[in-house]
Simulated scan of single mutants.
Amino acid sequence: MRIILLRHGQSLGNVDELAYCRIPDHALPLTELGEQQAVAAGDTIRELVGEGPVAAYVSPYRRTRRTFELLGIPAERIVTEPRVREQDWGNLQDPVQQEVLKHQRHAFGHFFFRLPNGESGADVDDRVAAFLDRLEARMHQDETHPRTVLVVSHGLTIRLLCRRLFDWSIELFESLSNVDTCENRVLDHDGTRWRLDRPFAQWRDSPDGAVQLP
């Protein structure tokens, strides 16, 4: 089994933080560069998928759905999957409060800090776990389900999905950086355990000494 994780292309929110104050997070579009990134990523994803069928699980946000559309991947199954959406920061955000919350979240820790009217990283971790459990059940119960899965999601969500699959410590998770826009990670199961094709960028050593790759 192979899971290909892909972050969406550059979005308006990536270049203009005030966009969150006037446009709901789920409705933020890709920038022109983001659309170009998605088209370019199509060749890479097709190579990773190979000749076999693929099932695509796509966050319902506008930027992820558009990224998947521009990839041009002929997926056998396409599922809009809310459990792999972005961390919920609440609705239209106040710019002053937004800046305060970012500093508080960084000081408190991205995993446990709960955003007012939104989620903590732990909440995202729980729904990602539910997604993985359901995906595993589908693949065991339905022999026609493709063995290659593409997940088009978001930076934090992708890190937490890997944290779940590899049983990474929270300290290690908080030491990692998000993948760049339209960057991927590939997870392969060798019949015994999952393997990650390459590590995430790490901005500090994990305080507990944990590492990404065995």
Rank of each mutant, 00 (worst) to 15 (best):
R159H: 01
T181G: 11
L160C: 11
D197C: 03
H189W: 08
A201F: 00
I170L: 12
T192D: 14
L161F: 06
N178W: 11
R164I: 07
L160N: 11
W194K: 03
E174F: 03
R185Y: 04
L172K: 04
R185C: 07
I170D: 13
C182M: 10
V179W: 02
E183K: 06
R193M: 11
E171C: 15
R164P: 09
D188V: 05
L161G: 13
N184S: 07
L176S: 02
I158R: 13
C182K: 05
S175N: 10
L196F: 03
A201Q: 01
D188S: 11
G191W: 01
N184F: 04
R198I: 08
W194T: 02
S169E: 10
G191Q: 02
E171Y: 14
R163I: 00
R164E: 11
P199D: 06
L176K: 00
R159L: 02
V186L: 12
S175Y: 07
W194Q: 08
C162G: 10
V186H: 06
C182H: 07
A201D: 05
R198P: 11
C182F: 05
D180I: 05
F166C: 08
F173N: 09
C182Q: 06
W194L: 05
R198M: 09
P199Y: 00
R195S: 15
G191H: 03
S177V: 07
R164Q: 09
L161D: 12
S177F: 09
L165G: 10
C182N: 11
T192G: 14
L187D: 07
L176N: 01
R195A: 14
T181R: 05
E171G: 15
S169W: 04
S177Q: 12
I170E: 15
L187Y: 05
L176D: 01
D167I: 05
N178K: 13
T192M: 12
L196E: 03
W194I: 04
D188Q: 07
R185T: 06
F200V: 00
R195I: 10
A201M: 01
I158P: 15
C182E: 10
D190S: 12
W194V: 02
N184V: 03
I170G: 13
L172N: 08
R195Y: 08
R195T: 14
T157I: 15
I158S: 14
H189A: 09
R163S: 04
E183F: 07
D167E: 13
F166H: 07
C182W: 01
R185W: 03
L176E: 00
R185S: 08
L161S: 09
W168G: 04
C182G: 11
R193E: 13
R198G: 11
S175M: 09
T192Q: 14
I158F: 13
D180C: 12
I170A: 15
W194F: 03
T157G: 15
L176G: 02
N178T: 14
L176H: 01
S177A: 13
L172H: 04
A201N: 02
T192I: 11
T157W: 13
I158G: 15
L196Q: 05
R193C: 11
R159I: 00
L165K: 06
C162M: 05
V179T: 12
L187M: 08
D188A: 09
R193F: 07
R185E: 06
W168D: 02
V186I: 11
L165I: 09
R193H: 10
F200G: 00
H189Q: 06
S175D: 10
L187T: 08
P199R: 03
D188Y: 01
L160R: 13
E183R: 06
A201W: 00
F200L: 00
